[in-house]
Structure formats: C-alpha cells, structure tokens
C-alpha cells in the first residue's frame, strides 16, 4: 500500500516538474495570440517569426560566444584546480579551495553587483567580455565539482608508472591523465556551457548595451504580443538541451566502457 501511494506521489511530482515544459509546445503550435485555453488551431507562424527575428539571432550569437568562451575558460581553470586539489597537499589548501568554490554559495546578485562595482571603478567598459568574466567565475566551481570526481578516481600509481617507464611529467599528463579524465572534461564543458547560456542576472548587469538570449527573453516577456514566439523559442531550447544531455550521457557511458569503470550514475 505504502509503495503504491509513494509511486502515485512520484507521478504527481513529475507532472509538477514537467507541466511548464509540456505547455511550451502546446502554445508554440497554437494559432491563438493569447496564451490561454481553449486552443485555437495549429500554426507554424511563431517558429517562422522566431527564425526571422534578427535581434534574437544576434542575442543567440552573443550568448553562444559567451557560453563557448565560458565553457573553455572555466573548464581550463577547473582542470588546474581539480588537479591541484586531488593530487597535491599544500598549506592553506582549504582556504584557497574555499575562495574558489565560494560562488556556489553566494547569491548571484552579490556576484553581479560586486563585479559591476569593480569593473566600473577600474573603468573597464561593459561588453560581452565582461559577461564572460562573470560567467567564468560562476561556472568554475561547478566545473571543479565535476572534474574533482574525474581526477580523484585516478590511481596515482598510473602516472608514476608512466613516469617510471620513461615519460616526462607533461607527456604523462597527455598520454595517461588527459585520456582518463576526458569524460569529466566533456561533462564540465557542457555544464559550464549550459550555466552560461541560461544565466540572466550577471549578464543583465555586465552586458552593457549588448544583448544575450536571456536578456532578450526577459525584455520580450513584457509584451503579450511576443509571448507565442517566446513559447516557440522555449520549445527549441528544450529540444536543444535534451539533445545536449543525451550527447553528454553517451560520452559518459563510452568513457566508462573504455576504462571498464563501474557506472556510478549520472554525470551530475
């Protein structure tokens, strides 16, 4: 009895989780201009609007530039930190790691406002670059969390063995460590990419006159006329993120199969 009621609750909870997502395509293909039931009829107009929208195209391009840069930067910084954290002992390590991981427990508005204050104080003009700086700061702790798992499962004697067999420290890193942490690096890159692509408040504060995808969406949500197009955009984003997640899962499984490690669950 208890089992089935818990299962029923789980089902309701999934409905709660997915309701907003499921409604996206419902209204994206609905020909009514007002987001309300009953539905009017089927249309592709909103998707047509979407792909014809040049401001949106520019915002998307900006967001992709920022997200790709953030992904590369924070994963690189994450590799350094995860390697240092899992392989070396040094005095003051908890403090150093604490500072680096701090953005995880800071409200985003604090990160946004402190960065804004400093960037204005040193006279750096707000641009896509300043958004990349902010997003990298935010995404690095997540990258480290993912990479830590990958690096800490490395047996230290593997690198000693390579070193012992005549390789240098650098070639050991390239031949042994890097291939073994590649699934972690891919997960980290995807995660940072997604965090950056979706981030609003830091971008909103640091982008200056530039527009990113979330800034554009936020600006359009005020206009009821634009909402059906936003629904179409949301639908596309959902599909894109599912494809991205499936890819990530595929790489993770392949990495596991290659090294024969045990499956310990999702890449989260």
């Amino acid at each position: 009895m208890k089992f089935s009621s818990l299962k029923g609750y789980a089902f309701l909870y999934l409905v709660f989780l997915y309701a907003p997502i499921v409604l996206l395509p419902v209204f994206a293909f609905n020909s009514g201009t007002i987001i309300a039931f009953p539905l009017k009829g089927f249309t592709l107009d909103w998707f047509r609007d979407l792909f014809a929208n040049q401001t949106l195209g520019l915002a998307l391009k900006n967001s992709l530039i920022i997200a790709v840069s953030t992904s590369i930067l924070s994963t690189t910084l994450g590799v350094f930190a995860a390697r240092a954290g899992t392989r070396f002992k040094f005095p003051g390590k908890p403090g150093v790691m604490g500072l680096i991981m701090l953005p995880l427990v800071l409200p985003e508005i604090i990160i946004a406002s402190s960065l804004l204050v400093v960037l204005l104080a040193v006279g750096m003009p707000l641009s896509l670059f300043t958004v990349i700086l902010g997003h990298t700061l935010m995404a690095t702790p997540y990258a480290i969390a993912v990479l830590n798992a990958a690096f800490s499962s490395l047996d230290r004697s593997l690198e000693e063995a390579a070193y012992d067999l005549g390789e240098t420290k650098w070639s050991t890193f390239r031949l042994i460590i890097l291939p073994l942490v590649t699934p972690g690096i891919i997960s980290s890159a995807l995660m940072s990419f997604t965090i950056s692509l979706d981030e609003f408040i830091v971008a909103f504060s640091l982008a200056g006159k530039e527009t990113t995808l979330p800034i554009y969406i936020f600006s359009q949500l005020r206009f009821p006329k634009q909402i059906p197009m936003i629904m179409a955009l949301g639908t596309c984003l959902v599909v894109a993120s599912i494809v991205l997640l499936a890819t990530a899962e595929y790489f993770r499984r392949r990495g596991l199969a290659k090294t024969g490690a045990k499956d310990t669950g999702g890449f989260l």
Binding site: T76, L77, G78, F80, A81, R83, A84, G85, R87, F88, K89, F90, P91, K93, V96, L99, I100, L102, P103, I110, I111, S114, L115, V117, V118, L133, G134, T136, L137, T140, I144
Partner: peptide, 24 residues
C-alpha cells in the same frame, strides 16, 4: 609537493582573487 600544488592552483586562484575577492 607544496610548490607544485601552488603552481597548479595559481591560475584558478589568481582568477578568483581578481574577480571574486577583490570585488567583494
């Protein structure tokens, strides 16, 4: 080990100091 550890952590640490500690 300590020197290697600091060298390894330094890019990330410098980033955090410049863009997190200093702004705070």
């Amino acid at each position: 080990e300590a020197v290697n550890g600091y060298l390894m952590i330094s890019p990330t640490l410098i980033y955090a100091i410049l863009l997190l500690a200093a702004p705070l």
